[in-house]
Amino acid sequence: MPHATLTIRIPESLWIHEISTAYPDTAFRVISVLVGPDVSVAVIELATPNPVPIIASIDERDDVGDLELLWKHDDTALLQIETADQSVLTPMQRAGVPVETPFVVEDGVVTWELTTSADRLSTLGDLLEESDIGYRLESVHDIDGRTDHLLTDRQREVFLTALDEGYYDVPRAASLTDVAARLEISKSTCSDILHRAEGKIAHWFADERLGRRSNGR
């Protein structure tokens, strides 16, 4: 069973996108969330010395039906918010992927930690794309530990650096030369290590996700 880290760009139409981008230095920590058939209710912690303008901005939103200040102490405020627009959560509902809390929304972006089946994770990706919700799969690994030794430490370092630099983005944000320069190794060495790492990952994916019978490599 995979454990995945998923970063999602919240649609601009949602209140949390507008408010969190208007206050980019404030972390909106979602403590709990209840998703109903028509509305969602969330308890959100704000880390800010002055929550008044933020609360006022939230209260002005048409897609926020109810807003309560539950608690305020020092630089922390706790709010309960009811909203009718739950489009960012709908793909998770349809895929049958539980929402793990707490999670943090900052500057229009939310990062979710997900533990679910490979099939449901794949379905979630498809549904996010269908909903035109931008996302990035930051990491995924089996919680049973079978992939712990899939790559050597060096292969893992080079592969993750290439991933972070945008080598696998479409279009590519970094070239092989850029990745090699970041690691201070030659382009040929970088290419060789990446090729070996990609081969191991491809064989693992084919065996674990596509049901191919392993040939022992």
Rank of each mutant, 00 (worst) to 15 (best):
L151P: 02
F103K: 06
K200T: 12
L176H: 04
T147Q: 07
A202D: 15
S87C: 11
A180F: 03
H149T: 09
L176R: 06
A95M: 03
V158W: 01
S40K: 04
I185A: 07
P37F: 08
P24L: 09
L14Y: 02
V43A: 07
A27W: 04
D144M: 12
A206G: 13
L160D: 10
E208V: 11
Q155E: 15
T115G: 09
V64K: 00
G125I: 03
E198P: 08
G65S: 08
H203M: 14
L127V: 05
R146T: 09
G96M: 08
G134A: 14
T177N: 10
A180G: 10
G134R: 11
L14F: 04
L194P: 03
D74Y: 08
H203T: 15
R136M: 00
V97M: 03
V110H: 00
E100A: 10
G65C: 06
I58F: 02
H73D: 14
P2R: 02
A22E: 08
R217A: 15
D169W: 10
V109H: 01
H195S: 14
V52H: 11
L79F: 02
D178V: 05
I10E: 00
I133K: 06
M1Q: 05
A42K: 03
P51D: 07
N215W: 15
H195K: 14
E184G: 06
F28G: 01
M92R: 06
A181G: 12
I19T: 10
P49I: 09
T123P: 00
P53E: 06
L194M: 12
H149D: 10
D169N: 14
V41H: 02
V104Q: 07
L124I: 04
L163G: 00
V43N: 05
I55M: 11
E68F: 15
H141Q: 13
T189R: 13
T83E: 02
T115V: 15
A27G: 07
M1T: 11
T76R: 14
D178K: 06
K72A: 11
L78S: 04
S57G: 10
D192T: 07
S20G: 12
W15R: 03
T147W: 05
R212T: 12
N50H: 13
L128Q: 07
V39Q: 07
H3C: 09
S175L: 14
G211M: 11
R94F: 04
R209L: 14
L210R: 08
V33E: 05
I19K: 00
G166M: 07
T111K: 05
I54Y: 01
E68P: 00
L69A: 13
V88L: 15
L163R: 04
T76S: 09
V33Y: 00
P91S: 11
I58E: 01
I55Q: 03
D75M: 05
D192E: 13
T161A: 09
R29M: 10
G36W: 05
T123Q: 06
A4S: 15
E165W: 04
L124F: 01
V43F: 04
A173T: 13
P24H: 04
R217E: 15
D126K: 11
A173C: 13
R209G: 01
V33R: 02
D85W: 02
E184M: 03
I31D: 07
N50F: 08
A174G: 13
H17E: 13
D153H: 09
S32M: 03
